[in-house]
């Protein structure tokens, strides 16, 4: 395990909330989140705050968001 991955594990332990959004709900909200970012908006002002928290906790979902931003930017 790389040191940055281990530090991420430590941070994710202390960031853990009582309730967290599951990946399936994240995937439902992700396109809206990406549209807001691409339009230059602030997702924090949208009803999407848990999306950012989920990405902080789930590396795969954060990778998906990064990929979706790149795909949406370059596809159109």
């Amino acid at each position: 395990m790389r040191r940055d991955q281990f530090l991420q594990l430590l941070r994710s332990i202390f960031r853990a909330r009582e309730q967290e959004m599951p990946c399936s709900e994240f995937f439902e909200l992700l396109p809206r989140y990406v549209d807001v970012v691409l339009a230059g908006g602030d997702p924090a002002t949208e009803p999407l705050p848990d999306v950012a928290h989920h990405m902080a906790q789930c590396q795969e979902c954060a990778e998906a968001c990064e990929a979706l931003l790149r795909v949406a930017r370059s596809a159109e």
């Binding site: 995937f27 992700l30 396109p31 809206r32 990406v34 549209d35 691409l38 998906a64 990929a67 979706l68 795909v71 949406a72 596809a75 159109e76």
Partner: peptide, 14 residues
């Protein structure tokens, strides 16, 4: 709730 193309790209990225 989003652009249809963004919804499609999300499926593709996955």
């Amino acid at each position: 709730e989003s652009r249809l193309t963004t919804w499609v790209y999300r499926i593709a990225v996955n």
